[in-house]
Each structure stands twice: as structure tokens, then as C-alpha cells.
């Protein structure tokens, strides 16, 4: 774990984030819009996994978000078992113009909880908000589900860029906040200040990393 930190000493944090949701809800395009400001009206379906990293700054700290994208069909998640491992954040995406994708959200949340090895900050994303005439899921329904499940919620459009940055930034900030609280708590518990030396906290491994930082159940 420390190897990573040694190699890239400028990053303060590395967050692994997963994109999940039914096939063709626009996961890959959300990522393309966020990471490269691109959009493909007809992009190929994702097979296996792909990922991108994006760096941002919060409180003067550099944070690298490693965002994982995968195929929507169930078959692929079993084989890419490492997909959920170490994830600290998730964007659970549905398509506001296809009701079925919204109805499957609970299934995706169940899976996320079943496979991830730590608590995961989750943002519910209703994508394709530009398809106003074809809307099948109202904003209120999205909000209600998010409240019931205790998630953040945002409607996005990868096509016209609406809220895409916001969705990812909200997620990263929320992870950072949760982590800061935990770190604070941890330092309170252990006043030896060990953490202030090793600033790098990588939320990747199940167990406490070699810097002694808490990486689990923050």
C-alpha cells in the first residue's frame, strides 16, 4: 500500500469510486464527460472494466479519484470480483427515461452492500435528464428513494453536461468529510499523532495500512 504513496507523493488521498447501474443508463458517458469532457452519442457497450483517474483539491489537499466503470449486465460483475473491493464511493445510476432502470436501483444497492468491504458513500444519479419528453421517473420519486435509502441525489445529463461535475464532486467531498471525521476521531483516540506524519491515507485495503491509518469503517 505504501508503495503507491511512495511513488506518488503529491497525492494526499486516493479514493476508489465505482459506477453501477443497468446497462445503457450512461455510466461510461458520465465518466467520459467528467474525466475528459467528452460525450459519445453511440458508444460501445463496456465489457469487463475500465477506469479513469481524476484529481481534485479539497481544503488544500490533493485528492485523486479513481473511478471504475463496468458493464451493466450481471454476468460481468462476478468475474471482475475485484470491482467492488476497496471502493469508498459509488454512483448508482439510472436512466430517467426508463422506469425499469430506476426499479432496479434497490437491487444494485443490495449488491453494493453485499460485495463492498467497507461502508460506501453513495450518490443516486438520475441520468439523461435532457430527455424531458421521454421522462418516466419524476425528480420527486428520485428524491424520495434517496431519502429513504439515506443517499445523496442528483439528476444529470452527460449529453449537455448538467450536474455531472457536481455529482462526482459531491461524492468526493462527502467521502472526504466522512473520512476527516473518522480521522479526527481516530486521532482523539490515539493522541500519539501518528497520522499527522503519514499524511497519505489510501482507502484501498481492507485492513489498516502500513502507515497505521484507519482505512476501514470510517
Amino acid at each position: 500500500m505504501m508503495k503507491y504513496a511512495d511513488e506518488e507523493p503529491t497525492e494526499d488521498y486516493l479514493f476508489k469510486i465505482v459506477l453501477i447501474g443497468d446497462s445503457a443508463v450512461g455510466k461510461s458517458n458520465l465518466l467520459a464527460r467528467y474525466a475528459r469532457n467528452e460525450f459519445y452519442p453511440n458508444s460501445k457497450s463496456t465489457i469487463g472494466v475500465e477506469f479513469q483517474t481524476q484529481t481534485m483539491e479539497i481544503d488544500g489537499k490533493e485528492i485523486k479519484a479513481q473511478i471504475w466503470d463496468t458493464a451493466g449486465q450481471e454476468r460481468f460483475r462476478a468475474v471482475t470480483s475485484a470491482y467492488y473491493r476497496g471502493a469508498v464511493g459509488a454512483l448508482v445510476v439510472y436512466d430517467i427515461s426508463r422506469r425499469q432502470t430506476f426499479e432496479n436501483i434497490t437491487r444494485w444497492l443490495d449488491e453494493l452492500h453485499a460485495y463492498s468491504d467497507m461502508s460506501v458513500v453513495t450518490v443516486l444519479v438520475g441520468n439523461k435528464a435532457d430527455l424531458k419528453d421521454a421522462r418516466e421517473v419524476s425528480t420527486e420519486e428520485g428524491t424520495a428513494l434517496a431519502e429513504a435509502q439515506n443517499l445523496c441525489f442528483v439528476e444529470t445529463s452527460a449529453l449537455d453536461s448538467t450536474n455531472v461535475q457536481l455529482a462526482f464532486q459531491t461524492l468526493v467531498k462527502e467521502i472526504y468529510n466522512v473520512l476527516s471525521r473518522k480521522v479526527f476521531f481516530y486521532q482523539e483516540q490515539r493522541p500519539d499523532g501518528k497520522l499527522s506524519n503519514g499524511k497519505t491515507v489510501i482507502l484501498q485495503e481492507k485492513d489498516v495500512d502500513s502507515a497505521g491509518a484507519p482505512t476501514r469503517k470510517y
Binding site: 460501445k44 465489457i47 469487463g48 472494466v49 477506469f51 468475474v79 471482475t80 475485484a82
Partner: peptide, 17 residues
């Protein structure tokens, strides 16, 4: 790098992508 991350697609799609 977990080989699944690159080889899975090579093999299942017979290199088409």
C-alpha cells in the same frame, strides 16, 4: 494490474474491441 482488467475483454470478444 489484475489480468482480468485487460484480458477479459480480449478473450471474450476475440480481440474485436
Amino acid at each position: 494490474v489484475n489480468p482480468q482488467f485487460y484480458a477479459f475483454r480480449w478473450i471474450t470478444l476475440l480481440l474485436t474491441q
